[in-house]
Computed example of a mutant assay.
Amino acid sequence: MLLSQNFLTNSDIARRIVRSSGVGPDDLVLEVGPGDGMLTRHLLEVVDRVRAYEKDRGYAERLRARYADDHRIRLFHRDFRTLPAPDEPFAVVANVPFAVTTDIVRWCLSARKLTSATLLTQREFACKHSGAYGRWSKLAVTHWPTVAIGLGVRIGREHFHPVPKVDAALLHLRRRDRPLLPASALADYRALVELGYSGVGGSLAASLRRELPTRRVARACLIAHVAGDLPVGFVRPEQWLTLYRELRR
């Protein structure tokens, strides 16, 4: 395993991953850590513009030689995390090195022109950030007004080499056509989320009362159906939006 990466070995699964991403001929697609090119070859079946970023020099040179005469793809020996986001709409499709998954997800969420990201990650990570465990991460809640985050199919660990200790799953990020809050409110909403996840008092309500009047917090929680003793991780994104609107009336 190079650079904490487990390579997908099942071509049918790779094809299904590309299909689930929804990318097509007109899309610019960025691939993170193509490795031996399992996803790359299937991307090139449906996409005419691929930019692949491989941190391992050996794999980067091998892929560059393989696709030297293919105008549809450009190969870069570079750490994707250092890349400035394109200034045109683009999608990301990747079998993400597990050790840098959080960094890649944060990069995608902060890219203004990102339309979607289809990321093969550890299943636990995908579940944690999509609410599949009944809990929601701060990262997901923070970006929920602008990006829909969902859990995709489970992929068994036997379909990778080297075989990891855990199964994988797809994590789908899709930029909303219409944000759930106006752009002018996003910074304020994210500040409220930051306060709510500050972890003071054992519940979301207790954390909010650090800076907001007790009666306002109680009323907002009542309207949002958030129990006064509910830990912050169990508060759904939709409830956060209701809380925000009520507290900022």
Rank of each mutant, 00 (worst) to 15 (best):
A68N: 10
V200T: 13
E45C: 06
R74Y: 01
G22C: 11
G35W: 08
L83G: 00
V47I: 01
R64M: 14
I73N: 04
A185M: 10
L83M: 15
V217C: 12
Q122P: 02
Q239A: 08
R64I: 00
S4E: 14
E194H: 10
R51D: 12
G35F: 08
L43N: 11
P231M: 13
S4I: 00
V193K: 09
R209Q: 13
T82R: 04
E238F: 00
L212R: 15
C108L: 07
S4C: 04
S203C: 13
P213G: 13
F80T: 07
I149N: 01
G35V: 09
L247I: 01
P25E: 15
V105N: 07
V96D: 05
R209V: 05
V193Q: 10
V23K: 13
C127A: 04
R57G: 01
A205F: 04
E54L: 06
L181R: 05
R154Q: 14
S184Q: 10
D229G: 14
R41L: 10
G37I: 06
G150K: 14
G24E: 15
W240M: 05
D12F: 12
L180T: 07
T242G: 01
H159D: 07
D56W: 02
V226R: 03
R249D: 06
Y59W: 12
E246L: 06
V141P: 02
S116P: 00
L170R: 07
